[in-house]
Design a binder for these strands. Structure first.
Lengths: 158, 158
DNA sequence: ATTGAAAGAGTCTCAGT
DNA sequence: ACTGAGACTCTTTCAAT
């Protein structure tokens, strides 16, 4: 895994480009970055072997699939030490797509994706509220997603 | 774009599989799902043309790139009507990777990715607090990400 | 480390079913 | 609509620099 690599500008450019759109061929990306396709290949292989690049995914428009309700839920725990157990229970609920253990207002913070408000209500009332250790929750429903993008990895030119 | 398609089980299986890992070949995915590689190809093309599949991305381990601080920030606005203007300003800050307009406790909700606490402090104090329309913010720092996964798209068998 | 070319593997198209 | 095979493109390897 992590081999303590020093990445150069080209590595960062490749990551930035392919993290946004991996459909470009090595030859074309090479043209864009003024190196050969072979070099792109070597760099990507290095990035994969070092664990920086972890895979490739199709991106999906979940609204087009009928998932219209994106929600953020702050969770108050009775005791923070119950975190592991609660996380294990929450992992069983497929509508919860992301869970973080946090400092600040809430103990835990979840993102929930549902088809409609009825389904959300079901997840919040019938599932979340029945988990031992959860004191209460606060729900934020997303009315609009302004943007959702990658970190800008290319700033430093090492 | 959205052509009002009726997707069948195979479509959902393809989405579920490739949204998690797109490195499998059409031939191999076909084997797994008991159809030919050609059929996988036709289905994926249909999903792309209909706008359900929006692209392909390399996934990156941002911690391995030195981004150690993942933060969620709830934003209180002076007036909700200032949403558009504030969003435009927030979009200029590269460390903000996601922004949603929400109902509930906060007016807006952002995810911020930084290299370290100093950088986070800079974003929160020098950037966020100077934006007209933002009343105050509440910060949740992620200590641990329990999971981060896709919606389970394959339930209904149409 | 990068290159360019050859070998291997995958995608894409299409005629047949 | 699915299949299998041929055409085409991309990835991968490697000898040379």
């Amino acid at each position: 895994m992590s081999q303590k690599l020093n990445l150069d500008k080209l590595d960062y450019q490749i990551i930035q480009s392919m993290a946004e759109n991996a459909e470009i061929s090595y030859a074309d990306l090479g043209k864009k970055l003024f190196v050969s396709g072979g070099t792109i290949h070597v760099r990507i292989k290095k990035l994969q072997e070092s664990g920086i690049v972890t895979g490739t995914r199709l991106t999906v428009d979940i609204k087009a699939l009928g998932f219209d309700v994106i929600t953020f839920v702050g969770i108050y725990l009775q005791k923070s030490s119950m975190y592991e157990d609660v996380a294990k229970e929450l992992a069983k609920i497929p509508q919860i797509v992301r869970l973080n253990y946090t400092t600040g207002t809430y103990s835990m913070f979840a993102e929930i994706v549902c088809k409609n408000i009825q389904q959300l209500k079901h997840v919040l009332h019938d599932k979340l509220q029945n988990i031992k250790g959860i004191e209460r929750t606060e729900t934020l429903i997303s009315l609009e997603e302004s943007f959702n993008r990658n970190v800008q990895v290319l700033e430093e030119e090492v």
